[in-house]
């Protein structure tokens, strides 16, 4: 069952990767990267259950935090040209 969920997440990953490569605007790429981050957060947890070691949850919490900070930082860099340092 967990394997089926992992396969579905991988298919979805590939579909979003098409958008990431095709792009058109930078915002499409950032949005696709953020969605892939969400999928990977879910994927790490499901993979932990699949391997019988649910302690992997800790890694996916860290990944969720980094995913959010990374997306906002990239957008801020794109907007202002700096990350706050002059």
């Amino acid at each position: 069952m967990f394997l089926a969920v992992l396969i579905a997440l991988a298919i979805s990953f590939l579909l979003i990767l098409v958008r990431l490569v095709m792009g058109r605007t930078t915002f499409d790429r950032i949005l696709a990267a953020n969605s892939i981050g969400t999928l990977i957060v879910l994927g790490i947890s499901v993979h932990g259950f699949y391997m019988g070691r649910p302690e992997f949850i800790d890694i996916s919490i860290v990944y969720a935090l980094i995913n959010f900070i990374g997306t906002v930082a990239v957008l801020k860099l794109f907007d202002k040209g700096t990350l706050g340092d002059k």
């Binding site: 579905a8 997440l9 298919i11 979805s12 579909l15 979003i16 098409v18 958008r19 605007t25 915002f27 499409d28 949005l31 696709a32 953020n34 969605s35 969400t38 999928l39 957060v41 879910l42």
Partner: peptide
């Protein structure tokens, strides 16, 4: 919901519409 959201992310016409699909992955799917 995750698969529908990724199909929407490919199929919808512009970045504003695609945000709805990404929001669907983030809320219902997750």
């Amino acid at each position: 919901f995750i698969l529908t959201g990724s199909i929407g992310l490919i199929r919808l016409p512009d970045v504003f519409s695609r945000i709805h699909a990404a929001g669907m992955i983030d809320t219902a799917g997750a």
